[in-house]
Computed example of a mutant assay.
Amino acid sequence: MGLLFVGAYFTFAAVQGDYGLFRRIQIEAERDTYQAELDALVAETAQMTLLTRRLSDDYLDLDLLDQQARDRLGYMRADEVILP
């Protein structure tokens, strides 16, 4: 009878315990979520690095500079017409 209880305890611990099957599935799901978040942050960092490089003193992208001046400062050329 005691052997049955010990076996039941170890079976329960293997499934429900801190290091059990359900905890492992939960950890793997969290890992996948964090990996997706990391991938998004890496892509965002790469995009920001590219934009920073394009606006640096060594490499000046006039189209990007024009876009940023329009977006941030509200600049427009004299021959442009803005429609509401």
Rank of each mutant, 00 (worst) to 15 (best):
L41Y: 07
E28D: 14
T45F: 12
P84T: 09
G7P: 01
D66Y: 12
M76E: 09
V15F: 10
A40Q: 05
Y59W: 11
D63T: 10
E37M: 02
V15G: 01
E44V: 04
Y59D: 10
R24N: 07
Q68V: 15
D39R: 03
L65M: 13
D18N: 13
T33R: 05
Y9P: 02
R72S: 09
A13M: 11
D63A: 11
T52M: 05
Y34T: 03
D79Y: 00
F22N: 03
A13Y: 12
A29W: 06
T45Q: 14
L73M: 05
E28W: 11
E80C: 01
D39E: 09
R54S: 02
G20M: 01
L38T: 04
F12I: 10
F10G: 04
F10K: 14
G20E: 00
D61T: 01
F12M: 08
A46Y: 03
A40I: 02
R54P: 01
E28T: 08
L38P: 04
Q67L: 15
G2D: 12
L4W: 12
L21N: 03
Y75F: 15
L65A: 14
L51G: 03
E80I: 00
R23I: 02
M48S: 13
L51M: 14
I82T: 01
A46F: 03
M76V: 03
D71T: 10
L83F: 04
E80V: 00
G2I: 09
D66A: 13
A78F: 05
D66C: 06
A36R: 15
M76N: 06
A14L: 05
E80Q: 04
D61I: 02
L50F: 07
A46M: 03
L21E: 05
A8L: 13
D71N: 12
L62G: 04
E80S: 01
E37K: 08
V42D: 08
Y59A: 11
A43W: 03
V6Y: 09
I25C: 11
F22G: 01
D71L: 14
Y19I: 07
A8S: 08
M48C: 10
D71E: 13
T11K: 14
A8F: 08
F12S: 04
L64H: 00
D32A: 15
F22Y: 09
V81P: 00
L64V: 03
M48L: 15
T11W: 15
F10Q: 06
G7E: 08
A29C: 06
V6K: 08
E30R: 14
I82R: 07
G74R: 02
F22M: 08
R53T: 09
E80D: 01
D66F: 05
T45C: 10
R54I: 00
D79L: 02
G2P: 03
E44L: 10
V6S: 03
R77H: 11
T49K: 15
L51R: 15
E80N: 02
D66M: 11
A14D: 06
L21G: 03
R53F: 11
R53A: 08
D32V: 11
I25V: 14
R53Y: 15
L50W: 06
Q16L: 12
I25Y: 14
T49L: 13
L51Q: 12
L4C: 10
E80L: 00
A43G: 07
A78H: 07
I82K: 04
